[in-house]
Write a protein that binds this DNA or RNA. Structure first.
Lengths: 168, 168
DNA sequence: TGAAATTTTCAGAAAATATTGAAAATTCAG
DNA sequence: CTGAATTTTCAATATTTTCTGAAAATTTCA
């Protein structure tokens, strides 16, 4: 596989991967493109390389910035905005993990907590069973949540590294 | 919140959560319904409770069985098929983790390995930079993959528990 | 058997999501 | 300021994903 093919293949695959992980294809591809770009890129270059519209490029770039996985970079003597990727994998995976944990685990935990707190439930046998199951989910989700916090709120990969040493 | 509302709320929320995790809404809702159902349910009951078509119910049930998070159960004296959820959270989260790891991490790792193995790449400065970045991703992905294997291939939650003790 | 009950399949419809492209807003050099 | 360059917005469109419903296949009991 030569360089050109490898690069295209990488960007393409990263896009597919992204969509499986609930990140949209374009966003994942832009990140991939910037990850392997030797220099900062403009919106126009990105549009051309990925064959996407300006609107799409702009929206995706904005969201990637919001997630903290890419940055704007101004280049002296050029009015255009340039973009670079956060190249430290630990840093950006961290950021994504943190955001997704908050969006996806916290609401579940909130609901489970709320149900468990309800005094009304648990009169009948069926309700007791229901509660038991919800409590198990609550406990599990709580554990996962605490774990994610430890992993994602601690500076960089520190804890992850500890974990890896323990397990591998 | 009373029992009925809690149950509906739980199923609804689980569905939303599911779609964020790349599992479709109906599948997640069926799992939720079966998780808190005191007894096995038929396709017809599921259709009625979730207001979905037979085709949708059938497809979703099949996939859930394929994933190993629910089971078929025959009930004496009834020709209909009944379904029950795997209620042990550790067991089913394990199964899902394993499947998704194979589907989503392995292909990425394969590609990265293939690129790294390519002798042709690395002549120019740009290519060297590309390779460096790909190698970092490879190393990271490899670590995550090994970790996932350890976690998901070891019996039940054993290793996860160890991990939790270490970290929390 | 055979016919009623049940399950499966799958083409088309509906819903959800992503993308375009052009107009509006903003920025900035002269 | 002014207007050309650049970025942002968003209604319209396209694509992808999910769901329906009815026909076909399968199962099971009499």
């Amino acid at each position: 596989m030569d360089y050109k093919k490898a690069k295209i293949n990488f960007i393409e695959t990263w896009g597919v991967l992204g969509s499986q992980w609930g990140i949209n294809k374009t966003m994942a591809q832009i990140q991939a493109l910037l990850l392997v770009a030797p220099d900062p890129l403009t919106t126009d270059t990105i549009m051309e390389e990925l064959q996407i519209s300006r609107g799409n490029a702009n929206m995706s770039l904005r969201q990637l910035i919001e997630w903290g996985v890419i940055y704007k970079k101004s280049v002296a003597g050029d009015r255009k905005e340039y973009f670079v990727a956060e190249k430290d994998i630990w840093k950006w995976s961290h950021k994504i993990g943190k955001i997704r944990k908050e969006r996806e685990i916290n609401p579940a935990l909130d609901l489970l907590n709320e149900i468990v707190a309800s005094k009304e439930i648990g009169k009948t046998e069926e309700e007791k069973e229901f509660m038991k199951q919800i409590k198990e989910l609550q406990s599990f989700t709580g554990t996962v949540s605490a774990l994610a916090d430890k992993l994602f709120l601690s500076p960089k990969g520190e804890l992850l590294l500890k974990l890896i040493k323990t397990l591998l």
